[in-house]
Nucleic acid binder design. Sequence first.
DNA 1: TAGATTGTTAATCGATTAACAATC
DNA 2: TAGATTGTTAATCGATTAACAATC
Lengths: 226, 226
Amino acid sequence: MRPPHQDVPEATLRRLPIYYRCLQDMMAAGVVHVVSCADLARALGLDATLVRKDIEMTGIVGKPRVGYPLEDLVRWIENFLGLNRPKAAVLAGTGSLGSALMGYGKFRTHGMQIVAAFDIDPEKIGQPVHGMEVQPLFCLPDFVRNTGTPLGLIATPAGAAQSVADLMVSGGIRAIWNFAPAHIRVPRRIILQNEDLYYSLASLSFKLEHLMTVAPVESDLYVKNN
Amino acid sequence: MRPPHQDVPEATLRRLPIYYRCLQDMMAAGVVHVVSCADLARALGLDATLVRKDIEMTGIVGKPRVGYPLEDLVRWIENFLGLNRPKAAVLAGTGSLGSALMGYGKFRTHGMQIVAAFDIDPEKIGQPVHGMEVQPLFCLPDFVRNTGTPLGLIATPAGAAQSVADLMVSGGIRAIWNFAPAHIRVPRRIILQNEDLYYSLASLSFKLEHLMTVAPVESDLYVKNN
DNA sequence: TAGATTGTTAATCGATTAACAATC
DNA sequence: TAGATTGTTAATCGATTAACAATC
């Protein structure tokens, strides 16, 4: 029962879900019932020691010479990440993106359940979106307070993001998942995760221009001359 | 004209777009026309030296004692990341997410333009989505080949993601931006960027359970006892 | 027993931070 | 000139990789 549960590196936190999906796929395939770090590393093109360290963070104890029982490992990661304990979430903004988020049915089995949706547009308020009635935005803080909802999703236009974040914070939200293309500021105690497509696009754009040329031989020579 | 344009750290590539947006906001506010690394660092809660190193990667030369002309800096980052040279992109999958992506009008001014949309559903083919006629999926490879489109977006269900990726690769795509919740494999030369919400959700879930308690004093004592 | 794999400790590598010299 | 900020080099820190001992 080793894990400190503190200082789990961000990088580990990014990789564990990848292992999780890969292991689930293996389980679905049903070919093997035990998996070693080397197996996982090979499947994902990673270093085996890195995989082992990551997996150790979950606290599971494996069997030398054998590996980890596939199903056990899946459960440990699931439990470690909390994917089996869905967090309630409120959604602000029911445009195309917000609506798409509500349609992601599998969020519930992956740690989150959207329990209410809010919008400022009178035309949308009262209308059902994916079977849930849209509520007026000003009701959001009270809803968060009264239900103790820990997580808020922002899927508004950029201009509204900061004020919506403030509303969430005023209601006592603990974490914000921001999909609006805007930089928002929140108190230090709030967990903020930005899912900004423009940020992703920027690095993709760079790579496409610069990294992409795994150049043919002549060009390689040219490059070396620099 | 210093930058190697090779080995730009991933971390730098993630932060530059953040600076870019912040600087644009400053420009819009119009209060200042010159900015120092310390200014930027303060605005974003980062270390000033870190900001300077990142900015140096773009190759811009600043003035000691003064800083960087705001507009110049914006242009340098923009040019460095290639945001001013839109890349053509094809979209596969025109469900709610794909449709939302097509609706992101500002992609064009941020490095990407969706030039064609594909789907396998006969009901969607031929229909317009955001003013663009959906084409049958089997036409995708030829389209990519004939137009030299460098970038492919996958917004299909998980089950279809790998085969769509294969189609894109067969057409000669150079980069794939994958929004489907699935692990896909591509040849090493292809740039692959995953935008997997389940991965993000997993780390958010963990933080919500474990990191969130910036605990009151008694709890702090308790934690120390571990 | 022999050998493969885990668990753990040490070495390496890269990114961040700190220190300082150059300069407007 | 004095001082703030850039540009650059050195120190620190953390994550990855390598080495090895423990174990089934």
